[in-house]
Amino acid sequence: MNDSNQIMIQLINAIIREAEHHLNKSSEFYPFAYAYTKGQLVPVNVFSGEELPSVKEHLSLLSTTLSDKYDTYAIGVNSTFRNEETNKPLDVIEIRMVIDGEEYVKCGMPYQLNDKDVVQTFDLIELE
Rank of each mutant, 00 (worst) to 15 (best):
L66P: 01
H58K: 07
Q112N: 14
I12R: 06
S26K: 15
K56R: 10
V77D: 00
I75G: 00
V77R: 04
D115W: 08
A19Q: 00
E28Y: 14
A35W: 04
L52G: 01
V105W: 09
N45E: 09
G76C: 06
V92P: 00
I7G: 00
S60F: 07
F47A: 14
I9G: 08
E84N: 12
S79I: 07
A33H: 03
G39P: 04
V42D: 00
E57R: 11
N87L: 15
D91T: 12
L11P: 01
D71P: 05
V119I: 08
K106N: 09
N87H: 14
F47V: 13
V105P: 08
P110F: 04
T64R: 12
V46Q: 07
E126R: 15
A74V: 01
P110C: 02
F81Y: 12
L124C: 05
H58L: 10
E126P: 12
R17L: 09
G39N: 07
Q40T: 12
Q40V: 11
L52I: 10
T72C: 03
A33I: 03
G101E: 01
E102W: 11
P110L: 02
Y30C: 13
I15L: 03
M8I: 10
I9T: 13
L124A: 02
K25Y: 10
E18Y: 15
D71R: 14
S4N: 10
L113I: 00
L124E: 01
N83P: 04
D123V: 12
L11A: 03
L11Y: 02
E126K: 15
Q6A: 13
Q10E: 09
H21T: 09
T65P: 03
P89V: 07
V119N: 04
D123M: 11
R82K: 11
L59I: 08
L62I: 04
E128L: 13
Q120R: 11
C107M: 10
F29S: 03
E102F: 11
D123Q: 14
I12L: 04
T64W: 08
I75T: 02
K38S: 11
Y70C: 04
K88M: 12
A14W: 05
L90A: 04
V92F: 00
C107R: 07
Y104E: 10
H22M: 14
L61P: 04
A33V: 04
P43A: 07
R17G: 04
T86R: 11
K106G: 06
K56P: 01
R17K: 15
H58F: 06
R96L: 11
V55Q: 08
G108V: 06
H58N: 03
Y111N: 04
E57Q: 14
G49P: 02
E28F: 13
E103F: 14
V44Y: 01
R17C: 06
K25R: 10
E84G: 08
Y111A: 03
L66V: 08
Q40N: 13
L113T: 00
